[in-house]
Design a binder for these strands. Structure first.
Lengths: 175, 175
DNA sequence: AAAATAATTAGACACTGCTCAATTAGCCAT
DNA sequence: ATGGCTAATTGAGCAGTGTCTAATTATTTT
């Protein structure tokens, strides 16, 4: 996935490279969707670990560390990162809870850091804001990776995202 | 595209429904990518027209009209809207200028409205901010359409996006 | 060594994007 | 009308895809 990207990914190519036949993959994974969920779940774990480490080892400006680590992981693994959002579950299918939890773990890190900046806010307020800020940074990150920002001549997407986050935290009464 | 979505879209299905064979489609469009570019180009035109109309017919709060129209179009045509971002050009291929222009037209509307709120800012400042706000709203819209916000229990994505936009304009010295 | 279980495979099915020689349709001058 | 020319259209074929299953091979247990 990291090499081919979502569009070029196929179960048959995986089978070839691991030296098994297609059938074996379908014995291990119920369907291609399940394999993709597993791959994206792993990506979420890597991403979460990367965020945690960069925040811990970063300086006092934890929000800056968070935003830059968000971008950093996506830039280091662009195809893995994009695959997370390229894969859409077929209508009837629900994501297994184990994989949902991997996604929540990343969200929780953001909650914690926003809460730290807004000690006077309720949990509910923090969660609302955190979700909005995740969407904000996600949007900037998407435009960076798919080349839209480059096409528009935008050279500092990370700084812009950080600016938006800072303004929102300030508006909510944070530091 | 509006019915099947990007993943379920195929040239053969198009051929069946227009009563032609596959070959004809490939005589008209150089490749499937070119057909997808044409479809997404049309979507951009529809979207731009919708934005312009809603801003013109909306009230004094033009920023609200803009953000709500951005979301509104995506909600009215979720599969068409998502197809814009689902389709990625193969590495070597460049987007034809006629289609690039359709995308710029939408961006220009946002520039104009941001500039209106920030008469004291330079064009360059407005363009930077506008790009960032597009990314911000895009992120919220993506999370709404792909169900992430619903999963997280977020009920007012449009209001959140509008809030972020308002804060950013205020921080830049706008009204 | 035999029986039972688990792992693995190859092939078939229906689908995909894409190409191209062969056919059909439309038009125009004789 | 007829023949000739061009433009439009076709569908079979290629290599690829996800998915399923009967048959085979490995492994473990008895």
């Amino acid at each position: 996935m990291a090499e081919t990207g979502f569009a070029g990914f196929s179960a048959r190519a995986v089978a070839r490279r691991i030296g098994y036949s297609v059938g074996t993959i379908y014995n291990v994974f119920e369907s291609l969707d399940h394999l993709l969920i597993a791959i994206n779940g792993r990506t979420f774990e890597l991403w979460t670990a990367y965020l945690a480490e960069r925040i811990a080892e970063g300086g006092d400006d934890r929000i800056r560390s968070l935003v830059e680590a968000y971008f950093g992981f996506a830039r280091n693994h662009p195809k893995l990162w994009m695959a997370i959002y390229d894969h859409r579950l077929p209508p009837g299918m629900a994501m297994p809870d184990r994989d949902m939890e991997k996604r929540r773990a990343l969200t929780r890190i953001v909650f914690q850091e926003i809460a730290r900046q807004l000690p006077q806010c309720t949990d509910s307020e923090v969660e609302h804001l955190a979700r909005s800020l995740i969407a904000t940074v996600h949007g900037h990150c998407t435009y960076e990776l798919n080349g839209s920002f480059a096409l528009m001549g935008e050279k500092h997407p990370t700084a812009m995202a950080l600016g938006r986050v800072r303004e929102a935290i300030a508006a909510a009464g944070g530091s």
